[in-house]
Write a protein that binds this DNA or RNA. Structure first.
Length: 578
RNA sequence: GGACCAUUGGUGUAGCGGCCUAACAUGCUUCCCUGUCACGGAAGAGACCGCGGGUUCGAAUCCCGCAUGGUCCGCCA
């Protein structure tokens, strides 16, 4: 058994060669006196042609076989296959291993749902599209390493067994056997370690880092995932962004053949919220939000207060098309984000109708037509709330609903941009003077905003940046605080006592007393990037063995109860479930 | 923690109170077929309709509970 080449590599230039091929039987077409076999391996599929089927041993789907024969030019090429111009005229076929009937069809166009495929992931992975996704993912990693190697970065591995921190996401805990009652935490990210590497003088670090977060899952969120993580010293935010743009441009060029225009667009956080109702806007289409308050307040509707935010989305040509049923659907969408619902206005000829029309005066209706320029058959949907976040996020969701509904998203387009100038703090709703960190407490406030720390913390912006691609947050980072005094000021604003800080971060911030360099970094979500490059909206499509929404593995059935002896060794007792 | 949707031969769906002794596609088995490439043609096997209650003369179909899967909200510094 000596394979001469991969099945998917055969081309016209190989015609006449004697070859030995190995692989799986993807399909058979038996024409009686003539038998065709599609042979698949990791490189692709090629057609075997058996002129004497009676001499061929019985082969069925997914049998592993060895085929010897001669490459020939096909008279009728198959343009759906890279190898479609050639076939292999078979001399002999040997069955290497038989296969039972598989539970689903092993082909890109399969019949099974994801649940079934995940139970037999090893069969699912034989499908060329899945393998392709893994190749894309691997290519992103190899470009990452190559690019940052060439920029003088050092790959460093940071610990997997870490000190647990109550901040941020829920930790996955690992009990200590040596020290009963104590636990390690799996890393949520290598954040603190990479900063210590900067204090340690490494200057330029990167890592392909596995991260773990024990939070609920989503179509684009898994409990274990991989970050392409970097950190560097002595670079400005602009330098870091352009360094990383170079990386992204290579990724899109080498994997998708797309030229990304550099430098990338940068949009301020509050502008993103204003125009798109999202801090990760999908900028492949318009439908921007706008302020409608001057047109509809005050009105006959008493539920709208003077301090309320009133924002809207206008959709041309949808006034008549929008049905009661669709409006209900949109209202349900809006309510998810804390809105009470949506109001509608439409123009039909000279008439303004819709759910809010009855609250408006004739002058207001006229203004909609004249001043706002509302067109015939135009639909305006709007919402009001004292909470800006609710209005923005709610309408942001409506915006993307319409984009999907109206088919505004062109396939195979990539729109990359940086969202910058994130606020440093997020005020806690209903508790004035209380704040949580928007990113993390080590994020550096912008120099020009430092005076605001004492007076208006909610207005302080940070050196924080996210890379947004097609509406996905594909990565993000910040410059970090290296000044001891500013760090303490932030801690106090976040309501942390000296005691808290010492217990939670003492081991970390002590390092900053010994000459920490200015530093900052970024982390890309490898899966998110791979999803976008593969054109899928399901994160499981780019993970070899993903977890399901209950954070379980449908294949191995992890997690599971463990042997009492194991618990005994760890001095752990499990409460009996009700 | 919450909302919504789904669960029917191996696989994917249809059926939505009696025409169901459950349909279609695909896969599988057998036979025919020398240029197919989603091959084609013929015949056949394969399902107590997720589980447990209830309503009804009658339930795959309606109701309740549970389980599993998915999508979303909260959560994800």
């Amino acid at each position: 058994m000596e394979r001469t080449m991969g099945n998917g590599e055969l081309r016209l230039t190989n015609v006449g060669e004697e070859v030995t091929l190995l692989g799986w039987v993807a399909n058979r077409r038996n024409l009686g006196g003539l038998l065709f076999i599609d042979l698949r391996d990791s490189t692709g599929i090629v057609q075997l042609t058996c002129l004497h089927p009676e001499q061929v041993p019985e082969v069925k789907s997914e049998y592993v076989i060895e085929a010897k024969g001669k490459v020939a030019k096909k008279e009728n090429p198959n343009k759906n296959l890279p190898t479609g111009e050639v076939e292999v005229i078979v001399d002999s076929i040997k069955v290497i291993n038989k296969a039972e009937l598989t539970p689903f069809i092993i082909a890109d166009q399969t019949d099974a749902l994801e649940d079934t495929r995940l139970q037999y992931r090893y069969l699912d992975l034989r499908r060329p599209c899945l393998l392709h996704n893994l190749k894309v993912r691997a290519k992103v990693c190899s470009i990452f390493r190559d690019y940052f190697d060439s920029k003088g970065f050092l790959e460093v591995e940071t610990p997997i067994l870490n000190l647990s921190s109550p901040e941020g996401a829920r930790d996955y805990l690992v009990p200590s056997r040596i020290k009963h009652g104590s636990f390690y935490a799996l890393p949520q990210s290598p954040q603190l370690w990479k900063q210590l590497l900067m204090v340690g003088g490494v200057e330029r670090y990167y890592q392909v880092a596995k991260c773990f977060r024990d939070e609920d899952l989503r179509a684009d969120r898994q409990p274990e995932f991989t970050q392409l993580d970097e950190e560097c010293s002595f670079l400005s935010q602009d330098q870091i962004l352009s360094l990383n743009e170079g990386f992204l441009a290579r990724v899109f060029k080498e994997i998708r053949g797309v030229d990304i225009k550099l430098p990338l667009r940068r949009i301020k956080y509050w502008d993103a919220m204003d125009f798109y109702g999202s801090d990760k806007p999908d900028t492949r289409y318009g439908l921007c939000l706008f302020d409608l308050k001057e047109y509809v307040y005050p009105s006959g509707f008493s539920g709208m207060g003077e301090g309320d935010y009133v924002r809207a989305i206008r959709v041309e040509g949808q006034g008549k098309a929008i049905s009661r049923k669709l409006l209900d659907e949109l209202n349900a969408e809006a309510r998810k984000f804390g809105l009470k619902g949506l109001f509608s206005l439409k123009r039909e000829g000279d008439e303004i109708s819709g759910s809010f029309a009855k609250f408006l005066s004739e002058e207001q209706k006229q203004a909609l037509k004249d001043k706002l320029g509302m067109k015939d058959d135009e639909l305006i949907l709007f919402a009001s709330s004292p909470y800006r976040r609710d209005v923005d996020f709610g309408l942001g969701a409506i915006r993307s609903w319409f984009a999907k509904h109206l088919g505004l998203i062109k396939p195979n387009t990539f729109d990359l941009l940086w969202v910058v100038d994130f606020p440093m703090f997020d005020p806690v709703e209903g508790e004035p003077g209380k704040y949580v960190a928007e990113h993390h407490p080590f994020t550096r406030p912008r120099d020009e905003d430092l005076p605001l720390l004492d007076s208006k913390p909610e207005e302080v912006l940070a050196y924080a940046y996210d890379i947004v691609i097609n509406g996905y947050e594909a990565g993000g980072g910040t410059l970090r605080i290296y000044d001891h005094d500013i760090q303490w000021k932030i801690f106090r604003l976040l309501g942390l006592t000296d005691e808290d800080v010492k217990n939670k971060f003492g081991w970390f911030i002590d390092a900053f007393r010994y000459g920490a360099p200015p530093h900052g970094g970024i982390a890309f979500g490898l899966e998110r990037l791979s999803m976008i490059l593969c054109g899928t909206d399901n994160i499981r499509d780019v993970i070899a063995f993903p977890k399901n929404l209950s954070a379980g593995d449908p294949l191995s059935h992890a997690p599971s109860p463990v042997d009492p002896d194991q618990l005994e060794a760890l001095a752990i007792e499990v409460k009996k479930g009700e």
